[in-house]
Simulated assay, not measured.
Amino acid sequence: MTAMEEPMLTATQHQRIDRYLAELSGALTELPAGDRDDLLAGIREHIAAALAGRTEVTDADVDEVLSALGDPLAIAAEATGGVPGGGPGGGPAPTRAAPAAPAAPTLSRDWVPAVVVLTLLLGPIVLPFLVSFGGLLLLPLLLLAGWVVLWVSPLWTPGEKLAGTFLLPAAGTAAFIAFFVAWDTSGTGSKYCEGGSTASGGYTETCTSGGGSDSGGSAIALGVLVVIAIASLVTAFVLYRNGRRRTDALAQSFSTGA
């Protein structure tokens, strides 16, 4: 491509295209080196041209273009006039075992979305109440591990990672605050008593209940905590759904060698 702008591809998308071309190159061993290089260059230009018109290239776009090209072995068979890797005139070639499909990177596996969501969402809810087991000490380590996996994994966009960093632990924080606020206001501290001696030598005591003046502020605080909890749960759902969708796409691409 000379007059056409090169499409912006991710590292994973470049790897898929390179694997496709490497498989094609391996099937063209009987072609002269110059002819093989020209054919590979033409295929690469075709892929770039097919992706150039898209505003944002996705993994599905790359899969679509490679699928439209067809099996590299079939392309090699047509180019050599017979069986890929065969001799001149299409003579049979020795049977070779197909290379094993590479496994997806560890942080792109199907268990990663569940681990990230459970770690960052449930960790802050459960661990603060496990004081006797060192829950408060383990919580920072658990959150740090979850954040590292979230940001290193290629399963989410930067915006999704930013939302997960702040909103996933927010539900646990809201529940922790709500628990201790409710515990503090449920005590007897809102009852005040005054006593003194009467003219006849007796004793009298007058008690009044307080705390009603702050009911409006408590309702607002409760509403804010509910909104935070809902935002956290929605974020957990979106991150898990998008993460699983992308792990399935990556698993399919690695299994087919695309």
Rank of each mutant, 00 (worst) to 15 (best):
E6D: 13
Q13K: 03
Q15F: 09
D18I: 14
L21G: 02
A22E: 10
A22P: 04
A22D: 15
A27P: 02
E30P: 03
L31E: 12
A33E: 15
A33F: 08
R36Q: 08
L39Y: 10
I43L: 08
E45F: 06
H46G: 07
T55D: 14
V57T: 01
A60N: 06
V62N: 01
V65A: 07
S67P: 05
D71C: 09
I75K: 01
A76V: 02
E78S: 05
G81Q: 07
G82N: 06
P84R: 07
P84N: 04
G85I: 02
A97T: 13
P99K: 15
P99L: 08
A101E: 12
A103M: 07
P105C: 05
S108T: 07
V115W: 04
T119R: 00
L120K: 02
L120E: 03
P128M: 12
V131Y: 12
V131I: 14
V131M: 14
L141Y: 13
L143D: 02
L143N: 00
P158L: 02
E160W: 01
K161T: 00
T165N: 04
T173V: 10
A174H: 00
F180M: 07
V181Q: 15
A182I: 08
G187L: 05
T188G: 15
K191C: 07
Y192A: 15
C193V: 08
T198H: 06
S200F: 11
T204V: 14
G210V: 12
G212L: 06
S215F: 11
S215T: 15
G216W: 14
G216F: 07
A221N: 09
V226I: 14
V226F: 11
V227E: 10
I228V: 12
T235E: 02
T235F: 04
V238G: 00
Y240K: 09
R241P: 01
G243I: 02
R246K: 10
D248V: 11
S253V: 03
F254R: 10
T256I: 08
G257K: 09
